[in-house]
Design a protein around this nucleic acid. Structure first.
Lengths: 344, 344
DNA sequence: GTGAAAGCGCTAACAA
DNA sequence: TTGTTAGCGCTTTCAC
């Protein structure tokens, strides 16, 4: 009747004693290890059930696995990350693994590294790093100690796996869509980068660069207009206000992420303009919200669930012993909705 | 030059040897424990820095604290949960604690319990449970073993702390707002509950019940119309379609959560109707998105950041030894925006 | 103020 | 197939 005070936790020793066997036997049953008779397995299982035993993770961590996968992501506010996490969860459910998430904050390489360290200190068996901004060297340092999958970067490394979207193609599809509609003054909102030297591998840089290239190829170099804020609602809002203040103002705004596009919609509405009447708006990600919003958003679909599922599979493979690096790329598609139309 | 293979981890023994002291001394310095001279502290600190030592969490967990706070939440897609998590993160940053999150899925008491167990197995020092649906008995079982703060339930327990919003007041404000605008056929979208007996403590039940009460008090009992789906975009979408099919259809829809209200907006738009021209729409939570959406949403503000901050503080207090239960309630306010107007 | 030593719950050699 | 035993890295008595 321990109404106050903690209940003493049931340990492997209790189970062993209760089943009249050794702790080793119990441990083996727990891990489905080789060399246990059916009778033994039965006895142990029964004892485990009877006592309500659950392995103590920290103790496991000292010697073996923790059956934990750590997910580091900038923040949980971006609905696209939800798709990824749901995919990951789907894939590892039933494998006995549990995903734990930590927020690392936006655009802060130091905080990001602390978040990853926090996962490593907690002895996760593998790490999924979502859209990290730190250097490849840092990621490789992590990968040397823990199975690592990086999502959303155009890196190449022999030490970790990459899951990414062909952002070049996605951005190209979108800019060409807008050009085909007849737009010329097409502006772009990107996420500003902290360290320029590695920007070539970050997806925001690739989307922005592709925007510039496609515009230039179509002879629209003089209409290039980029606002470098961030892939958040606030970032989209601020970026749009900046772009709307220019003269002549753009007839279309391509935000590098849906989340930012939502902010763009708000800024345009606040300025007394209409979408797509005065200005076309496009995003990237095809977050669920894009479909459901009142003005449904033209965007680029990259299948977050599949990216998450794949990341989970790759992680389990790595934990299982694979060491050769894998690179998985999803092909984006254009999703034209009501937020884009020919210019007035 | 360990290019392949894991680097051997720096342990407390390495630090002790390097600083020419005992491991006990190092441990004390790490925990700011009583009984270390300044000189000793200096020596140890230097060694820690030099070696880049970080305590091994699992080993700590075996004896003492893990400096980890576990957050269980239904899913990360709801932007209101982001506000809570940001508040929590803010509060515990600098305390040496790290928050880890696990998704438990919607409306599934068993999955929820597994998620909480997963946190306990990982020896977190405290748990924040966000809008749990399981029974109070289960929560108390958890609370007996781990400091626990429950957010978003109208429970009373001597074993854990509660952080909640006065949902009765919030729902009342909203229904009266709609009535004051002249609406009579006001419908409500709620989250269906799995186990009815404990529904009295769940926020969705309180919002729904208050809706019924206020309507009845205003002589509008005959116009009661509730769709029981869920607090998600899909739930709002499905619920709205159900309500729109009724005849006569409502002139206002009060969704129990902003997230659901977004789905309502989509359904209404799809039906060729306008907001607020044909139908007024209202939500609950004042998620950031509500402010920024193209049709800005009338909603009830409950300060998620403050709820998160408070939950963090209460958790740290409990970890620090407090055992008396605390109950913290925020007072909601009405935020009238453009999605509500007098009926046509 | 400092350090030696026991032990947390588990896994993995190794022995039987 | 089963059991014995030595740690994993840390915290915590308890001597000194």
């Amino acid at each position: 009747m321990a109404t106050s005070g903690r209940q003493a936790r049931v340990t492997i020793t209790d189970v062993a004693r209760h089943a009249q066997v050794s702790t080793t036997a119990v441990s083996k049953v727990l891990r489905n290890a080789y060399g246990v008779s059916d009778a033994m397995r039965e006895k142990v299982r029964a004892a485990i059930d009877e006592l309500g035993y659950r392995p103590h993770n920290a103790a496991r961590a000292m010697r073996g696995r923790t059956f934990t996968i750590g997910v580091q992501l900038p923040h949980i506010r971006n609905p696209f990350f939800s798709d990824i996490v749901d995919g990951l969860t789907d894939e590892i459910s039933g494998s006995g693994y549990q995903a734990i998430m930590v927020q690392s904050g936006d655009l802060d390489a130091a905080a990001e590294r602390r978040a990853i360290d926090a996962l490593m200190d907690r002895q996760v068996d593998g790490i999924l790093s979502v859209a990290p901004v730190c250097s490849r060297v840092q990621l490789e340092e992590v990968a040397r100690n823990t199975p690592l999958v990086v999502l959303g970067r155009h890196d190449r490394s022999a030490l970790y796996d990459c899951v990414l979207d062909d952002d070049e193609l996605g951005a190209q599809l979108m800019v060409e869509h807008l050009i085909a509609l007849g737009h010329r003054r097409i502006a772009h909102i990107t996420q500003r980068d902290t360290a320029t030297r590695r920007s070539a591998v970050l997806l925001q840089a690739i989307r922005a660069r592709t925007y510039e290239q496609v515009m230039t190829e179509h002879g629209l170099a003089e209409h290039l207009a980029i606002a470098a804020t961030s892939y958040t609602e606030e970032g989209g809002y601020d970026g749009a206000r900046e772009l709307l203040a220019r003269s002549p103002r753009p007839t279309a705004i391509f935000a590098g992420a849906d989340q930012a596009a939502f902010g763009v919609l708000a800024a345009i509405h606040e300025a007394g303009l209409t979408v797509p009447g005065d200005i076309s708006v496009a995003g990237y990600d095809n977050a669920r919200m894009s479909r459901l919003a009142h003005i449904s958003l033209t965007t680029v679909d990259q299948d977050g669930a599949i990216m998450g599922t794949t990341a989970g599979r790759l992680l389990l493979e790595r934990i299982g012993g694979r060491s050769a690096a894998v690179r998985f790329s999803v092909t984006p598609t254009l999703v034209a909705r009501r937020s884009t139309a020919p210019p007035a």
